[in-house]
């Protein structure tokens, strides 16, 4: 598991991904860790198959016993199906996750870890050096969905927003936005269901001061690429599995099928 520091100040952010031991048929994921003087926070810790790689990677960056908080942006297996394993490894921890998914997520096994349901409007988490914000991102793509904003590091961990489908071993950061767009397009048009939800999220995220946007798949965006992404996403029509009512040809084709 490759791990990079993406912010270093009084607290630190790390990204984990591009796991060379990953089984070929599962999607590559980015996991994030915030280390803040004995209060360590693991974001979207990954699936069952990622656990054995994540454990030593996290241990290389902090004391596992001091991982006190977990976060799940939503309920997908690549996000949090490792919950039952972390439940054994860090039984003292708290999991911050959408209130909507509590009864569902506990199917992964959550006997020791305390589940803290994030309300629809979001909430904050106080670490020693920073007050992290759980930013609502409902319907992007899950019906109960949050991102994490760090106003000190100016990092937005953006879950599936900004995700790209790429071959193994892709670089960690976007270096040519235009070239990166085709790798994101299908993912966003198909996985994101609601233009209204998308535009609502963009309007709120534009208010944030962001240096790095860190999605759960693919490359991270930094600097001007964050704005480029927001502009691109704003113009993108999502929810393509359902034809629009003002596109009669598409509806006709569907009916004919």
């Amino acid at each position: 598991m490759i791990h990079h520091e993406i912010y270093g100040g009084r607290h630190h952010w790390f990204v984990f991904g591009r796991d060379p031991d990953k089984l070929g048929h599962i999607i590559d994921t980015n996991q994030y860790l915030v280390c803040d003087r004995g209060a360590n926070f693991l974001l979207d810790p990954g699936g069952i198959e990622t656990f054995s790689s994540m454990l030593p990677a996290v241990a290389a960056r902090c004391d596992i016993a001091e991982v006190k908080y977990l976060f799940a942006s939503h309920q997908d297996p690549d996000i949090i199906s490792s919950l039952g394993l972390w439940d054994k490894a860090i039984p003292h921890a708290k999991l911050y996750a959408p209130w909507l998914w509590e009864g569902f997520l506990k199917h992964f096994g959550c006997h020791n870890i305390e589940y803290v349901g994030i309300p629809d409007e979001g909430m904050t988490l106080d670490l020693p050096s920073v007050k992290l914000q759980f930013v609502p991102a409902h319907y992007l793509h899950s019906s109960g969905n949050y991102h994490v904003y760090d106003p000190v590091a100016k990092i937005l961990m953006s879950g599936d927003v900004g995700a790209a489908l790429e071959p193994p071993g892709a670089p960690m950061f976007v270096d040519d936005f235009a070239e990166h767009v085709p790798k994101m397009e299908l993912f966003h048009r198909r996985w994101m269901p609601s233009n209204r939800a998308k535009n609502d999220w963009i309007a709120r995220v534009r208010q944030l001061d962001i240096d790095v946007m860190a999605p759960q798949h693919g490359r991270l965006f930094r600097g001007d690429d964050v704005k480029r992404f927001l502009d691109w996403f704003e113009a993108l029509e999502v929810g393509i599995a359902i034809p629009r009512e003002d596109e009669p040809e598409a509806l006709d084709e569907q009916e004919a099928a």
């Binding site: 656990f51 054995s52 454990l55 030593p56 241990a59 290389a60 004391d63 039952g84 394993l85 054994k88």
Partner: peptide, 24 residues
């Protein structure tokens, strides 16, 4: 089965630790 699986995955992860962890 779940405990066995957790133990197996924990051992695999621990085998790759840079240094031994008394906690783990």
């Amino acid at each position: 089965q779940r405990l066995g699986d957790a133990l197996d995955r924990l051992h695999k992860g621990m085998a790759r630790l840079e240094e031994r962890s008394a906690y783990l």
